[in-house]
Write a protein that binds this DNA or RNA. Structure first.
Lengths: 329, 329
DNA sequence: CTGTTAGCGCCTTCAT
DNA sequence: ATGAAGGCGCTAACAG
C-alpha cells in the first residue's frame, strides 16, 4: 500500500536540524568548517528523513556531473561485451557512471548524439562502426571529449590495433608457399572493420598480381552459417578461410569437420577476433589474441586523460599477435 | 586549438530570436501555439548558436527524467551480456536511457544503491546475486520501482524461471535408471543461483535416501577448469556432470574427450545456462534453452509497467525446457 | 500568440 | 561557525 513518498530535500533536513541550507549543504558534502554539535543534528535529520541528495539538482548547480557515455552497436557479440566490461571497469576506477547507448541503424545515431549532448556527459567513447567522422565531429564540435575504439579517424583520439600487415603476410604465405586459395567469410551487413580486413587480403593478392574474389557471404550467425558452409565444402575441399569473428570461423570449421575434411591439412581456418570460443573448439581455432577487455580499459583510460586535457589528441595503436592453433598449419 | 566552448542556453536563443524564454521553450519542445515567423527565428537562433537543450536543467524543472538503472555483477559472462542486451533493447522501446552499474563485491553495493537513489532514476532492474532483500528494500523504501531477475525475493517484483523440478527429475533418473553418479561442478565464489541448483540436486538425492557429496570445486574459468577435470577423469571414468554455466561444462567435456572417455556413454554433461557455446562443441552440450535476451526484455517490460503502476507487484516465472543434445543419453 | 514570474534542489560567494 | 541571497538552465502556470 505504498504511495509516492515525498522525497526530503536539503531544505527539509536544514529545518529539522534548525540550521540553514548552507550548513546542511556543508555537512552533506563533508566540509570541515561545521561545529560537531550542529553536524550531528544534521546527520540525525538526514537519517530521520531518509534524505538522499538529489544528484540532478547538484549537477545543475555545479555545472558538472560524473557521467560518461558509451556508444556501441549492440551488446550481442561476445567481444563487444568484453570491450564494454573493460570500459566499465576503468570507469569505476575514475568514479564515472556509464550511460550506455546502442545503435542499430543510422536513424538511431543522431538521436543518440542529441541525447549525449543534452545529458552534458563528461566524455564519450565510441566503439561503433555506424558512426563516421562527421558524427563524432558533432560531439567534438560541442567540446565533449571523445575517444573512438577500432575506428580510423585521424583527427580524433582513438584506440586501434594493427593486424593488417600480419594478415597480409599470412595471405601471401598461403599464395606463395602453401598454394592455398584464401576465402573470406563476410557477413551480410558487414562492418567497416570487416571491410578493412577484406582490403588487407585484397592488397596481398594484388601484390602477387592476383585478384581477390573468393568472398563468401554468410548470415551473421553461427547457426545459419553452418549449413551454408557445409554446402560449400561439397565442392571445395581445400582453402584457407578467414573471418572477422571467431564464431563465424567456427561455423565453417564445424561444417568442414562434419564433411570429413582434414583440418588443417585440407582446409584451414582463422578469425581475427578471438574469444573464449577459439579455445574450446576441437581443433582450437587460430586467431589474434586481441584482448577486448584491455582495449576497453585503455579506451576509458584515454578518455579520462582527455577529460583533464581536452586539447589533447591521443592515438594509441595496440599490437596484438597472431596465435596459431589447431586450425592452421 | 579548441577551447572550452560557452554552451548556449535557452536564454541566449531567446535573446538572439528577440523573444522571451517561454516562447523559445515552446518551440524547443514542439508546442504548436507559436506563430510561424517567430518559430522560424527561434529555429534559426538555435542553429546559429548550436544550442543543445540541457537535460539536467530540464529534469530538475520537470522533476522527471528518462533514465533507468541496471545493476549487474559484471558483463563478463556471455549470458549476462545477453540479459543486458535484452534489457537495453526493451528500454529503447520505452525511450529509457540506461545507466549501468556493476558490483564486484558487497562494498560496491551500497555505493551503487546511493548513486541510483541520488540520480532519481525511474526504476531499476537488478540482475545480481550480490543484492539481497534488504538491499532491494533500500530502493523500494524510497519508492523507486524495482524488478529483480533470477532472484527469489517474494516481496518484490521479479522475473524468474523454473528448472528445479526438471533438474530433480534428471538427477532422479540418473540414480534410478542410469545408475550414474551425479557430479556438481561448483565454481569457487559461487552465486546464489548456483546454490539453488545444488540444493535441487541434493533434494533429489535425499528423496532416494542418499546424501549428495559429489561437489567438484573449480575455478571460474574454462582454462583453469580444464586441467583440473582432466586430472579428475583419471580416476572417474563414469558420471553425470552438471554445472550452472555451459562454459564450465564444456571444460569438463573437453577434458573427458581428451582423456578418451566416451561421451555420453561413460560420462554425461549438462549445463543449466546454455549459450551459443552449447551449440558449437562436439558433441553439442545438453542444456536448458533459457533465452537470456528474452529474460532481460521481459524484465524491462515489467519495469515499465511498474513505473506506471508503482503499487503493483508482478511475479513472472518463465518456463524453459531441457534440451538434450549430444552429451547426455 | 507571447511575456512575466516563480520555482525545481542544490551550491557558493559574501557577510556576519 | 553560520546564514542570506543569488544563480545553475529550464518549465509551467498565469496574465495579457
Amino acid at each position: 500500500m505504498k504511495k509516492t513518498i515525498k522525497k526530503a530535500t536539503i531544505y527539509d533536513v536544514a529545518n529539522l536540524a534548525h540550521t540553514s541550507l548552507a550548513t546542511a549543504s556543508r555537512v552533506i558534502n563533508g566540509k570541515d568548517n561545521v561545529s560537531d554539535s550542529t553536524k550531528q543534528r544534521v546527520l540525525d535529520a538526514i537519517k530521520e528523513l531518509n534524505y538522499k541528495p538529489n544528484a540532478i539538482a547538484k549537477d545543475l548547480a555545479t555545472k558538472s556531473n560524473t557521467s560518461v557515455a558509451i556508444i556501441v552497436p549492440e551488446i550481442n557479440y561476445t567481444y563487444i561485451s568484453h570491450v564494454v566490461a573493460g570500459l566499465m571497469d576503468c570507469a569505476k576506477k575514475y568514479g564515472y557512471d556509464c550511460l550506455i547507448f546502442t545503435t542499430e541503424d543510422r536513424a538511431d545515431v543522431s538521436q543518440v548524439l542529441n541525447k549525449v549532448l543534452s545529458k552534458r556527459v563528461n566524455g564519450v567513447v565510441v566503439f561503433n562502426d555506424f558512426l563516421d567522422e562527421k558524427d563524432v565531429g558533432v560531439l567534438t564540435d560541442y567540446a565533449v571529449p571523445v575517444v573512438t575504439i577500432g575506428l580510423d579517424l585521424k583527427t580524433k583520439s582513438s584506440i586501434t590495433w594493427h593486424y593488417k600487415n600480419q594478415i597480409k603476410d599470412i595471405v601471401t604465405n598461403c599464395l606463395l608457399n602453401k598454394k592455398q586459395d584464401v576465402y573470406f567469410l563476410k557477413v551480410h551487413n558487414g562492418s567497416k572493420m570487416e571491410q578493412r580486413l577484406q582490403a588487407a587480403i585484397s592488397e596481398a593478392y594484388i601484390e602477387q598480381n592476383k585478384e581477390f574474389t573468393n568472398v563468401i557471404k554468410v548470415p551473421d550467425s553461427y547457426k545459419e552459417t553452418y549449413p551454408i558452409l557445409k554446402e560449400h565444402f561439397k565442392n571445395h575441399p581445400n582453402g584457407f578461410y578467414i573471418s572477422l569473428r571467431d564464431s563465424i570461423a567456427i561455423a565453417a570449421l564445424n561444417a568442414a569437420m562434419d564433411m570429413q575434411l582434414k583440418v588443417p591439412d585440407q582446409v584451414e581456418f582463422m578469425a581475427v577476433i578471438g574469444t573464449k570460443y577459439s579455445e574450446l573448439t576441437r581443433p582450437k581455432l587460430s586467431s589474434f589474441n586481441i584482448n577486448m577487455r584491455e582495449l576497453g580499459f585503455k579506451g576509458m583510460e584515454t578518455l579520462a586523460k582527455l577529460i583533464l586535457h581536452p586539447e589533447l589528441i591521443i592515438h594509441e595503436k595496440l599490437p596484438f599477435g597472431f596465435v596459431s592453433r589447431g586450425t592452421t598449419k
